[in-house]
Design a binder for these strands. Structure first.
Lengths: 171, 171
DNA sequence: TCGGGCACGCAAGATTATTGCGTTCCGGCG
DNA sequence: CGCCGGAACGCAATAATCTTGCGTGCCCGA
């Protein structure tokens, strides 16, 4: 279980990470100006975030509706047999299906929440059939078609800056 | 309604966009090598994607569990009064709450699906109380605590490359 | 058949990122 | 109480990357 204790973050770290998770396109100079640090100091911190796995990757976010019609759906799923192997197989199918944006295993009567993105209602329907109806280990599933995307993103609420790591040599 | 007809995309466009939405950290040189184009040609295409709004932004993705304990939840919500104004107010609250990662308005008995990210179970609970219990226009809501994140991301399945835009001057 | 539009590659030129170095601050230890 | 090592900083030089101007080839429409 790769869980080295969460690195201690000072206020500047939190500011930087928050800036980056909202817009990773800025220059080191800009970032530095924002948090009051030189470009090289900013660069070194960011390198550390990467090394520590705080930043996993950097992605371009596409606008679904600029690619023509797009159908989103949230699907609630309950498996029939709950064996370890069945769960594994289901998860693997979700991971390997490009139209599956997100998949969470959850507590309660439902086992999974799945977010789908398809190019048409027809594809969305087919997808539901293929992923859930054709699987005879799915007890029940319910498709919640998305009318409107109010908010989207993967931004995390960052923990308040821990007062630790107070030793630093800036003026 | 700002909907200029979706730009036609050739196979290279699709490849580039797909590469970018999975890893926007590559250099123009790398991307060019991948799709068989010079760095400058790649740069010009990407500039166009931005101008056309295909790429909305570029973000760093953080690993929730590297920041210490993290609690995710999917919440299903049904409003009481369905007036336009009530919907607007709810949406605005979702947008302005950092712990709300995603919020979709959906068809069916439930009105919204909301994805929450909190630093602790306690914060998650408080958040539910603040966002939903304290709102007397919420008829009912159900919290699905996330046990495991099987898959996450915002990647779109890209449409098959349209054969259009076949005129281009590359060797 | 000719001309315009468009995308390309190449090669400067401009910007940005990276690294080496010397300095300061802090905490631990003799 | 003073010294030493570690960590982070700023500055400046270097390296890498991005951006842009220019000339060329291709396709389409006139």
């Amino acid at each position: 279980m790769p869980e080295p204790p969460p690195p201690r973050l000072d206020e500047i770290d939190v500011q930087l990470l928050d800036l980056l998770q909202r817009d990773a396109g800025r220059t080191l100079h800009d970032l530095g100006e924002w948090v009051g640090l030189s470009p090289s100091a900013v660069q070194r911190r960011i390198a550390r975030y990467r090394k520590d796995g705080l930043i996993t990757r950097q992605v371009a976010v596409l606008d679904p509706h600029r690619f023509g019609p797009t159908v989103l759906a949230a699907v609630l799923v309950t498996l029939d047999q709950e064996s370890f192997e069945h769960h594994r197989a289901f998860a693997e199918r979700m991971r390997s299906t490009p139209q599956v944006q997100q998949c969470y295993q959850v507590a309660g009567p439902w086992d999974y929440v799945v977010v789908l993105a398809a190019r048409s209602m027809r594809e969305c329907s087919r997808l539901g059939n293929r992923l859930f109806k054709a699987d005879d280990n799915i007890r029940r599933y319910e498709t919640l078609l998305v009318f409107d995307t109010v908010k989207t993103g993967l931004a995390l609420p960052l923990p308040a800056s821990q007062p630790s790591r107070s030793q630093d040599g800036r003026s």
